[in-house]
Design a protein around this nucleic acid. Structure first.
Lengths: 216, 216
DNA sequence: CTTTGTGAAATTATTCACAGCA
DNA sequence: TGCTGTGAATAATTTCACAAAG
């Protein structure tokens, strides 16, 4: 007996955006927000926004909009970000450093609690004020801090081995910044952030736009 | 008269992956690759791969597969990465540094040719061996190097202003790493890479999986 | 007069399944 | 036998359009 409707993946992505926007409004003391306003700031149609928000159950008031606080809380709950998500970061390179300093990775809900690197020379040093551990400590750190997430910020060649180690250490989710697919058992989730794909996607879009624009 | 079929966006994303894989095979001297092999390494069905590749026109050989070199070239052409894409990077922070050192941003097709930052104290300094320019130099640099792409690697609050400047400097594509939508005229393309959305997406997936897995 | 929630319609994307070629 | 290319079938997602509510 599912207590709520299954949320489609495209919707889940947009829910993140709605939540961020609701958070900003909340901070600014704005109590209501309409699907049209939300759509306008995010580049979506109002119908799309309403369909998405309807997955969270009735919450809007006709003629008024959605109460900011309630909206924010509902999305948080639906996304699971009302829980604590501790993460281990593997890779003390430049991407790892950027993530350590990134606000989203040091919030109440998400937090990088340990940094590891395969380079023995780095073990014991600090990065952005955090101590770097050797790889052998992974299972221990994951257990000690109750990490459910592992972040792969190592070069392509090392990514699969790191993924294997993370799975053995019993994380249930992996955020992968290496430019390749990592193979994991079905019980583990992977989300990849691929800079190269984004860049090539952009080239594709620009070409498409200029092809459409240039009609002699 | 369009000389080729319109490529759907999901397909375009996957084409990047196929191209990368073809490039790796090419480097290893493997001359052929089948839709099944491609699908296996990338986590897709063979039918999906074939449908996608069919947009590039006939190129596979029944019973054999796709010739690696030809496949790579065709995708390159379709994506527009057989052209040169110079980019200006705005933001000499930690994300900017990571991108500067990232292999994909210093290839024959893509290259970051200039770094800018709003902080006057950074102007004239170097980062990853590149000189940092003040914002006022943007138009000049874009024109001089023929940059078609601008990369936004600044905090949320500064992102829209940077986007406006990039548009004025006449870039046609923007790669946005700031966690917000940037508003641009329709003639400019934007692709966003949003770490926060990726992270929350992961939490969502993990929750979903554990909900499915745990049926008492 | 504005805005929600939602069935129905339209569009888009994926999977199936198989004829035809090497 | 192994594999491509592709119509047809299915599934997923978005848009439309409107009754009902503040």
């Amino acid at each position: 007996m599912p207590d709520r409707l299954r949320i489609p993946r495209p919707t889940a992505k947009r829910l993140s955006l709605y939540m961020r926007e609701a958070g900003l409004r909340l901070r600014d003391g704005i109590g209501q927000i309409s699907s049209r306003q939300l759509g306008e700031t995010l580049g979506l149609t109002d119908a799309q926004v309403r369909k998405d928000l309807a997955y969270l159950g009735q919450s809007g008031q006709p003629g008024v909009g959605y109460p900011t606080r309630d909206l924010h809380d509902r999305i948080r709950h639906a996304m699971g970000t009302d829980q604590k998500w501790n993460a281990v970061l593997v890779g003390a390179g430049r991407i790892g450093r950027a993530l350590l300093a990134y606000p989203s990775f040091d919030r109440e809900d998400f937090r990088i609690v340990a940094v590891l690197d395969a380079d023995p020379a780095l073990a014991g040093q600090t990065m952005e004020g955090r101590r770097i551990w050797p790889m052998a400590e992974m299972s221990h750190l994951v257990r000690e801090h109750g990490c459910r997430i592992g972040i792969i910020a190592v070069p392509r060649e090392a990514a699969q081995a790191v993924a294997d180690q993370l799975v053995r250490a019993r994380v249930t989710g992996i955020l992968n910044f290496a430019p390749r697919r990592v193979e994991v058992p079905a019980s583990t989730c992977v989300i990849s952030v691929d800079f190269t794909v984004a860049l090539e996607q952009l080239a594709f879009e620009v070409n498409l736009a200029s092809a459409n624009g240039a009609s002699s």
